[in-house]
């Protein structure tokens, strides 16, 4: 079998190299096709409206669309709102999920398995699925149209608890015991031993969480109704509604602008992004 494989090769080599070339072309075509929509958006955003469907390599570049978009809606405020929202969510997630993950990783208590299953349920039933009932809760709490309303349902995340628990389980028990002997309490051990050893997981979870909440639309759309709380996604949705009759080039500029921080971050730290998503995905 080995022999035929070896002797077969030269005979087929011309045909093989042809198909290899076709295959390579297919791969690059797929890559080009995938990035095309984004390139097109960049083209529209940086050219005057008359070049929306006219291609001219020497068409004059302009930042006018960005200026127009920026002036047409309170994007500065939206950026601030998104920034505050993400900071609040991420900080709470880190604290709340770390505590819970530690309990699941290192403590034995009654009902542990059932509680863990109940936590994992949130992986399936995400807060936006229950938006009608959650909206009612926010009305009762009197927090409609606040950062708190947008953030509360996401602060305890099953995904985060699960991810950190897996990380904590790999921490050697001896380190835990040693810290205990030195008189450290549960919180001290957590902060001195577990958190520092799980730093890559925090980075991974942080990146995944930031890109999720930067992009989240439905729940913020439901619980906000004013410029002073709306995040970027909702702001863009209000700005680009078809009945507003805004030019495509300006919409493209606004769309790129709202994605810019994530986009630039991704282009600069591509490896970290991809690795983070990988780390978060392997269970």
């Amino acid at each position: 079998m080995t022999l035929t494989a070896l002797t077969d090769q030269p005979v087929h080599s011309r045909g093989q190299s042809f198909w290899r070339a076709v295959e390579l072309a297919g791969c690059y075509l797929l890559g080009a096709l995938w990035v095309l929509p984004l390139f097109y958006a960049v083209w529209m955003a940086f050219h005057a409206a008359e070049y929306e469907v006219r291609f001219d390599l020497f068409a004059p570049l302009t930042l006018g669309n960005f200026v127009d978009a920026w002036n047409a809606a309170p994007f500065a405020r939206y950026f601030l709102n998104t920034f505050v929202l993400i900071t609040v969510i991420l900080a709470s997630q880190f604290v709340i999920c770390t505590l819970a993950a530690y309990a699941f990783a290192r403590y034995e208590f009654r009902g542990k398995t059932i509680v863990f299953m109940l936590v994992l349920l949130q992986l399936m039933i995400m807060p936006e699925v229950l938006l009608v009932e959650n909206y009612r809760t926010m009305v009762k709490l009197g927090v409609i149209d606040t950062v708190l309303a947008m953030g509360l349902p996401y602060m305890a995340s099953a995904f985060g608890i699960f991810l950190l628990r897996q990380a904590f389980l790999t921490v050697p028990k001896e380190l835990d015991d040693a810290a205990r002997v030195e008189g450290a309490g549960p919180l001290g051990i957590l902060l001195k031993v577990y958190v520092p050893l799980s730093r890559p997981i925090y980075v991974a979870y942080g990146l995944v969480s930031v890109s999720y909440h930067w992009n989240n639309l439905l729940w913020p759309l439901v619980v906000t109704n004013s410029v002073s709380t709306r995040p970027l996604t909702v702001g863009l949705q209000v700005f680009a509604s078809p009945d507003q009759g805004v030019q495509w080039s300006i919409i493209s500029a606004a769309a790129l602008m709202t994605s810019a921080p994530l986009l630039i971050g991704f282009l600069l730290f591509q490896r970290q992004f991809v690795q983070s998503f990988m780390r978060a995905g392997i269970k």
């Binding site: 890559g31 995938w34 493209s252 606004a254 709202t258 994605s259 986009l263 998503f277």
Partner: peptide
């Protein structure tokens, strides 16, 4: 990068494009 880019962008932004 080309394959992964759409994932990083907000759905609302790409939907408008």
């Amino acid at each position: 990068m080309s394959f992964f880019l759409p994932t990083v962008l907000p759905m609302i932004a790409v939907a408008n494009i």
